[in-house]
Amino acid sequence: MIELDQRLISQLTSIADVMLPETPQMPSVSGTGSFEASLLKVLDSRPDLAKGLKTAIDLLPKETFQLSDLDELLTKDPEAYTALTTIVAASYYQVKEVKVRIGYPGQVPKTYDPYAYVEWVQEGLLDPVVERGQIWKDPREEVK
């Protein structure tokens, strides 16, 4: 596993702030206040991406990074591009505040009434389909 030191994390945060900047509705990456903690969780889940992430940080300009540099990275090293974009997006969308802002509770369980279908059947939602009748081809008749 490749260790990300503070210098690399700081460089990554600068890049990520350009990729996901602040808007009136959404915080930037650094504006979330917990990007680093989230990043470490993501790398713990996907250690296989660490090498590509480090390569991406090494290849991208540090002070003058702009979005067009991502196109160049994609051409030069697709694996590094995938690692960078996956890690930045995953780290951002695991931050609780970000999930709240986009209205995403996670893949949570949901209860439902399995017999609620009776209601829409009785409402007649399927009636037009049934009224049009059989649409399957019966080969026993078709090939006579």
Partner: peptide, 11 residues
């Protein structure tokens, strides 16, 4: 059921 589900499905 975990936060890293979308990461796991990519590896």
């Amino acid at each position: 059921a975990e936060d890293d589900w979308e990461l796991a499905i990519r590896k």
